[in-house]
Design a protein around this nucleic acid. Structure first.
Length: 937
RNA sequence: GCCUGAGUGGUGGAAUGGUAGACGCGUCGGACUCAAAAUCCGAUGGUAGCAAUACCAUGUGGGUUCAAGUCCCACCUCAGGCACCA
């Protein structure tokens, strides 16, 4: 008798020897490419989370092979990265040595789990044979004008003298030493990814990504359609352009803002403001990205002394500089419309800049022959009692705030104060906010008239309870009541008053839609129509044009690190930047053992002078190599192409191989990579497609993501929390099949799920039960008659669920099947064989072993069973009988029963009779094979 | 603030608009055993009841429907991602 671990070893050797999972390029079988993100081989070893996603894809791969597909299921290593470099610095060894060790561990662990990877295609991104092609592809980017050098700000720690990634400088503090991170300008290689924004957006239509993945991509690209508007500067020839998505609000622009870094700032700043502006600009350079974008930060800024001319009404509006405007987005300048943009509103309030409302929300329904008038709604708040002043008309009109019509010669504010006094007698009010105006339509019963009013809202605070006697008119029969927030939300039904209350709760800019006011030729139009009309106006007056902007920027492609692909560029004093000759690739990383960072922010490579000094490929004179390396994302942007033709030394992959495999059919990875990694990979592929090197513009068809395996405390597994589960321990104690089965069964594959060793034991019991069932096997090459339906149902469910990531229900289906078998004294050989095949994708070792004992040829060389749809339906079924939607009984129905028979059966049930007794049957609903509902009155 | 998800027993989680809680874990009871482990059998959402059964129950409140965990509207909580993108 072999032990569990021996059985597993036996089959792992069998698969390896027989190359059971080798994918043959060019085979006449249908190709199917299943990819799971290749791991970073860390020193921690394989995580149980890896086991979950690899098992899931492995199960799919195994089933599809049995279904006759030529499955490509590869594995490799994404081994460049900071941890290996840190480790190397500490231990004075070359990172490639550390990586070699880690890969060995990872591979051994994967093999003990029995994943059906085609190991013949294995490679690491750190192999010179691989990164040669990463470098080669960079040269293609360069040669096609897609790579360029630019000066961009980087996070810089003055203490560590090192460039930090955004992650390492979270919170504006250096992760390592805790000192303040500052911004430093640095010349970096960039890839023109923003040129591809539109194509990356459109390309999504040619993929089958999950909707949330597509949304992630769309948000990251961040397309916004708007307009560029040109502003002249008063008394000066200069002009500047702003980007806006709301050109319809141009009449409401009351100032402009330039980013502190904007080129024009120095030119337009007047003498008297020079000093302050300089100081402000300087203060901004000291702030890092985090501080500048901090939430709820109070707006800051400085007036430049100059004025811009609003192109639609020639009004002079002041120009400020402020860091809430980003130099890197749009044109680095904005027109500010405080009435309709929250940020502008905050700035304008702080600097006392006028706020002009140009758009009103509309409430109520318009009607013919409306009378127009202006009115107010006053909301009075009592801070001490936390209550609002209302008047209650009871059944004559419900609860309202104080309202009224503005009279001749009266301002809205005067009107509001008068109305409050007349209706309630309160006089000591302090204005908190004047609220946005609302355009309201309503019908007045007492006057039998339709009105269209422009209502101004006010929020007051009550100061003291001084009250004079109200001056109500005779027909004003209401009560004055103080009402709580809850009462108001429940009882105030009037749309205008509700809207006004909403404004009072969230005072600020009105960013919604409505109709335009104070806007010349736009008056009366809604947002969309007004945008179109404004665009026409701007274009015909040469003052602006439609413009599309994207949040996505070019890809900063330089890293000041040792352990990455060297960028194959050479700088010559005479010839400038020159690409290396392609035939000289790969440019190898030097074999030294010191990678301490330099103290000026250069890559550690800069200190290795033997390596840095070289000759210019163009003029042959002395020159220096680029010392920055590529980011971690580079190698993973095209590895899936390499798997199609992993050992080609003429090309990164041959067109023939890529045409045969077509694309990645199924790509599984973590949710955290669905935005950036996927975008980089798609960009890379689209570029290669455009220069004719890959067969399709999108090389990834379906992208799905898995949930994390958390510790049993529902927290992320980490050494410090002591909740880490090592797959090696589990395999040793319970076997790989049990671990695989449990990880499939633990929960919804796409969702996070905590580890539970108790539940794992349950899966062990299930596997043991399957083994025990062998004792019940009797000869027979047919399914047992009474098992036929459940067998056919199970085949269908297992195969459907394996394809739709319902791995947990695959396992439960098989548990149900095994329980059914267990109820019987005997099962046929064929019954048992079927269970083994269905379970094989998830628990491949033990099923192969039991299958062999039965005398069959290996499952990995067999065919997947085909189910008979006709036999998936039960002859007899229990269904519920409802009366008025509540289940009152269950009856057994036969598939051939007519509606009449079913009806009869239902009406015979005692409990049903009791519930319909003395009542009239209104409706008799029979959903065949599902439910009966008797509706009675 | 915005975008994604998710809220169902003691617990992990099932459920094409059709008997909510499949399957598993745990717990309780029983069998086997000198005993324990393993295994097997039974019970297991809550309240009331001896029971038949009734009522309540899928985050909260409304709605659509013969029928809602599932669809629609509003809200609350949690997790992840993005965040002054004009």
């Amino acid at each position: 008798m072999l032990s569990m671990n021996e059985i597993e070893k036996k089959w792992q050797i069998y698969w390896e020897k027989n190359k059971s999972f080798k994918a043959e390029t060019g085979s006449s079988k249908d190709p199917y490419y299943i990819l799971v993100e290749f791991p970073y081989p860390s020193g921690q070893g394989l995580h149980v989370g890896h086991v979950r996603s690899y098992t899931a894809q492995d199960a799919m791969a195994r089933m599809m092979r049995m279904q006759g597909k030529n499955v490509l299921f590869p594995m490799g290593w994404d081994a460049f990265g900071a941890p290996a470099e840190q480790y190397a610095i500490k231990n004075h060894i070359h990172p490639k040595e550390a990586v070699k060790e880690n890969i060995k561990t990872f591979k051994r662990q994967m093999q003990t789990l029995g994943f059906s990877f085609d190991w013949d295609r294995e490679f690491s991104t750190t192999d010179p044979e691989y990164y040669k092609w990463t470098q080669w592809q960079f040269l293609q980017f360069y040669k096609h004008g897609m790579a360029y050098k630019d000066t961009v700000p980087v996070n810089w720690c003055p203490t560590c003298k090192s460039v930090l990634s955004n992650e390492d400088s979270a919170g504006g503090v250096c992760e390592r030493c805790g000192s303040q991170v500052v911004q430093k300008e640095k010349s970096q290689w960039m890839l023109r990814m923003s040129d591809y924004a539109e194509d990356l957006l459109k390309g999504l239509d040619d993929t089958n990504f999950a909707e949330k993945v597509k949304l992630g991509q769309i948000n990251w690209i961040g397309k916004s359609i708007g307009a560029e508007v040109d502003f002249k500067i008063d008394g000066c020839k200069e002009r500047f352009t702003v980007f806006t998505t709301r050109c319809d609000t141009l009449f409401g622009a009351t100032y402009c803002v330039l980013a502190p870094e904007h080129k024009l700032v120095d030119k337009i700043t007047t003498e008297e403001h020079k000093k302050e502006v300089e100081e402000y600009k300087h203060a901004c350079t000291l702030k890092n990205d985090m501080e500048r974008t901090e939430l709820n930060k109070e707006k800051t800024g400085i007036f430049t002394g100059s004025y811009a001319i609003n192109p639609v009404n020639n009004k002079k509006i002041p120009i400020y500089i402020s860091d809430y405007v980003l130099a890197s987005y749009g044109t680095g300048a904005i027109m500010a419309v405080p009435a309709h943009d929250q940020r502008d509103y905050e700035f304008a309030t702080k600097f006392n800049i006028p706020i002009i409302q140009v758009l009103e929300e509309v409430t109520g329904k318009p009607h013919e022959n409306e009378t127009e008038k202006n009115s107010i709604v006053a909301i009075v708040y009592n801070k001490e009692k936390d209550e609002y002043l209302t008047i209650n008309w009871h059944e004559k009109g419900g609860r309202l705030f104080i309202g009224g019509t503005i009279q001749e010669g009266e301002t809205p504010l005067e009107c509001a104060l008068r109305e409050v006094k007349e209706e309630t007698g309160y006089t000591n009010l302090e204005l908190v906010h004047e609220l946005s105006k609302v355009n309201h339509h309503y019908y007045a019963y007492n006057k039998d008239k339709y009105f269209n009013i422009e209502s101004t809202g006010f929020l007051f605070e009550l100061k003291g309870d001084k009250q004079v006697s109200p001056e109500r008119e005779e027909d004003e029969q209401f009560e004055v009541e103080w009402a709580t927030k809850e009462t108001i939300e429940k009882e105030i039904k009037d749309e205008l008053h509700k809207k006004t209350y909403e404004y009072a709760c969230h005072p600020g800019a009105m960013e919604g839609d409505g109709i335009h006011i104070n806007s010349g030729f736009l008056n009366g139009l809604n947002k969309e129509d007004a945008i179109h009309k404004m665009l026409e106006y701007l274009e015909s007056n040469h003052a602006g044009k439609e413009k599309v902007n994207y949040k996505m920027r070019d890809w900063i492609f330089s890293r000041q690190r040792f352990w990455g692909e060297p960028i194959p560029m050479i700088y010559c004093e005479k010839c400038g930047w020159q690409p290396m000759k392609e035939e000289d690739l790969p440019l190898l990383l030097p074999d030294v053992a010191e990678y301490e960072p330099t103290d000026n922010g250069e890559s550690p490579l800069a200190k290795i002078t033997d390596w840095v000094n070289t000759t210019c490929p163009k003029c042959g004179g002395s020159a220096r190599r680029e010392t920055d390396t590529m980011p971690n994302w580079a190698g993973s942007s095209w590895y899936f192409l390499r798997f199609m033709d992993a050992h080609n030394n003429q090309k990164f992959a041959s067109m023939d191989a890529m045409k045969y495999w077509r694309r990645v059919d199924w790509y599984n990875g973590g949710m955290e990579h669905t935005a950036r990694h996927l975008l980089y990979a798609r960009f890379w592929v689209q570029f290669l497609y455009n220069i004719g090197l890959v067969p399709n513009k999108e090389m990834i068809w379906t992208r799905v993501s898995h949930g994390m395996v958390l510790g049993s405390d529902n927290q992320k597994m980490s050494k410090s929390k002591g909740n880490v589960i090592n797959p090696d321990d589990i395999v040793k104690e319970y076997g790989a099949d049990t671990l695989r089965t449990y990880e499939m069964f633990m929960g919804d594959y796409q969702m996070d799920c905590p580890w539970s060793t108790d539940s794992l034991k349950g899966c062990k019991r299930f596997i043991d039960k399957v083994i025990r069932l062998k004792e019940k096997v009797v000869d027979g090459e047919k399914y047992s008659a009474d098992l036929e339906v459940i067998i056919n149902k199970s085949i269908k469910k297992v195969q459907n669920d394996l394809c739709s990531m319902g791995f947990n229900t695959v396992v439960s289906t098989l548990m149900i099947l095994a329980n059914k078998y267990d109820e019987k004294d005997h099962i046929t050989k064929k019954d048992y064989h079927l269970l083994l095949i269905l379970l094989n994708p998830i628990a491949p070792h033990i099923t192969e072993e039991l299958n062999e004992e039965l005398g069959y040829s290996p499952i990995c060389e067999s065919f997947w069973p085909i189910y008979d749809e006709a036999k998936t339906i039960d002859e007899e079924k229990e269904i519920g009988v409802q009366v008025n939607g509540k289940v009152r009984a269950t009856i057994k129905v036969n598939i051939n029963d007519s509606e009449e028979v079913v009806k009869e059966k239902a009406l015979k049930e005692e409990n049903v009779i009791r519930h319909i007794d003395g009542k009239e049957i209104v409706k008799f609903i029979i959903i065949k094979g599902k439910i009966i509902n008797i509706v009675v009155k």
